[in-house]
Amino acid sequence: MTKQTTQAPLGSPAIALPPTSVVTLKINGEERQLHIAPWTTLLDALREYLDLTGTKKGCDHGQCGACTVLVDGRRINSCLTLAVMQEGADITTIEGLGTEQNLHPLQQAFIDHDAFQCGYCTPGQICSAAALLTEGKAKTTAEIRELMSGNVCRCGAYTNIVAAIEEVLTTQKVQRHE
């Protein structure tokens, strides 16, 4: 039998916690104020403090893409940034892309192509795809696959995800040429 202690003793006095402060975030076009400590991630700020639970947590480590949101039009993993770092930025979450009554073309295409099953990765996939469209780098199926590979779908809906994005991409192209 061996003795094992997991950690060194804590220094005393007890650890001081970071103080909370007022952080103002611009989310889906609306200014929102919240009292949070600086160690709060953007993802937790959305889900736990603002009740914007459309943005999902699948790993909290930047490994799955479920937490993808748009910051100034760019897709980022919201679990890898602190909320305070995004003051002044334009943040768009899935709730800002469309509503059940007024779906974004990608949301409609995801429904039409059955591009999800459990739906848990879906908001991240759609936000990611929205940025992919504006980035303008993906032109072929292979490029869509490559550039959507930061978003894991454990249900394995990839075939339909690609089909949905392709459809929106082609319609956009057609519209641009008209």
Binding site: T55, G98, T99, E100, Q107
Partner: peptide
């Protein structure tokens, strides 16, 4: 579908 693609579905 609409609930899932808009983030309205709650887990």
């Amino acid at each position: 579908g609409p609930a899932k693609v808009t983030g309205a579905a709650k887990y």
